[in-house]
Design a protein around this nucleic acid. Structure first.
Lengths: 233, 233
DNA sequence: AATCAATACGAACGATCGTGCGTTGAGTAT
DNA sequence: ATACTCAACGCACGATCGTTCGTATTGATT
């Protein structure tokens, strides 16, 4: 059940290859180019101040073409959130899935998140940190989509922690959701601090806080020490 | 020395009352009205997508008047950051200063911050969370001003924690800066989560995380329990 | 061959953006 | 009383915004 969280739904590829309409293929290719430019721009400029004109320019297409392919700016924003979600899953979730359940997967997940932020998978840092701050006070579908994705991530992290507890690898973990909240908080402040200051020292602080919490939960000292000792500079 | 951090500099009142130029007084009154509208709008819409026109409309002044009073949009943004900083100091820092140094002031500071977020001192939640996410990938004076204010806050929180340690009230506190980082992370995620979901349950999570950390540092159990038991709903 | 569907473009719409210019009026200083 | 300073306004500039047309082009369908 929890394994079905945060999976990539292979929608387009499956339905498109059934009939392989050349027009649709061309359109989907354009959509992909547009969305790739959109999420990169949004992570820097902000999801709400995306301009269709700049996206079109970055994608090498006409402005009116972008407008007709997505209809409205809000629908383009919603598609951008979904595209960013897919990139996040590919970058952070799926590699962690290759580790066995338990503490190893927890550490892989956190390691993957830090790399996702540090390596600027989105040029402006974590897309969802930017989008959440941008839309948290603007009710609407876009805010709901961002909130839903973040809730999904928090739920997956909590489930991963709970697995580790159930396997006896974090025997003293009392509240997986609380730990998930704390880990996310540390990671996202490290992301913001790295962007604001241009330094990577806060990733070390995030690692230290998470390691301390995992040690208190009874996790294996050697594995946690190795995690905390990773240098991100 | 650390007491000089985050103080309100009484610039305007002191220099203006020397000669009491009626024109300057009128202008300063307009500036205050404009900046009050600007910070409120910025916390909701975002500091970078503030529009001079909407600010003027909210302040009941002409658009060109706003432009001439601040010259450029960037200078208005810088003034808005300074105004938001003053409101933050008045709301969070100064009330905590009335508590004695030590654990009591630490708890008052965190309590004040949660109230500052929960009561929407800025209608769109913490101004600096919004501004930092908006500008963290946009180099310039505004980003530097936001980063400087946040660094100032983190430094003050760390110094307050260090005082508590020096007074023997947090004997096991090993790294005040690390604790300050962790506290800020928990508070700001609670702020965002409250805005995104419309629920206040995350403040409880932030309190729990901070209380746990303070207990581990050897803080007085009764005081910490009372802090953690506060309901924000 | 003819009809329909989807992409793609250019042009234009009204609206708003940040920023200047010129003028008016209130307040100060000589 | 005259000259000067600053706030405040109306107006307009060029630019960009999101969106909507009309039209050409390419591919699928009949």
């Amino acid at each position: 059940m929890t394994d079905e969280l945060l999976t990539l739904t292979p929608t387009d590829a499956a339905s498109a290859t059934v009939h392989a309409d050349g027009r649709r293929l061309r359109g989907d290719a354009s959509r992909r180019v547009i969305l790739a430019a959109a999420v990169d721009l949004a992570s820097v400029e902000g999801l709400d101040q995306l301009s269709i004109g700049r996206i079109a320019q970055a994608a090498g297409l006409a402005k009116s073409n972008v407008a007709t392919l997505f209809g409205t700016k809000e629908r383009l924003q919603l598609a951008a959130v979904e595209t960013a979600r897919e990139r996040f899953v590919e970058t952070v979730i799926q590699p962690a899935r290759e580790h066995p359940r338990g503490l190893a997967r927890v550490l892989a997940l956190v390691d993957g998140w830090i790399a996702y932020s540090r390596d600027r998978v989105f040029p402006g840092g974590c897309f969802f940190a930017e989008a959440a701050a941008d839309f948290d006070a603007k009710p609407g579908e876009v805010r709901d989509a961002v909130a839903s994705t973040l809730r999904e991530w928090g739920g997956y992290l909590a489930a991963t922690l709970q697995h580790a507890h159930d396997l006896g690898e974090l025997p003293s973990l009392d509240d997986a959701k609380q730990a998930s909240f704390e880990f996310s908080a540390l990671l996202e402040l490290a992301n913001r601090d790295s962007l604001l200051t241009g330094r990577n020292s806060s990733y070390r602080r995030a690692r230290a806080g998470i390691a301390s919490r995992l040690s208190a939960a009874g996790g294996d000292a050697a594995a946690i020490d190795a995690f905390a000792a990773v240098s991100d500079g």
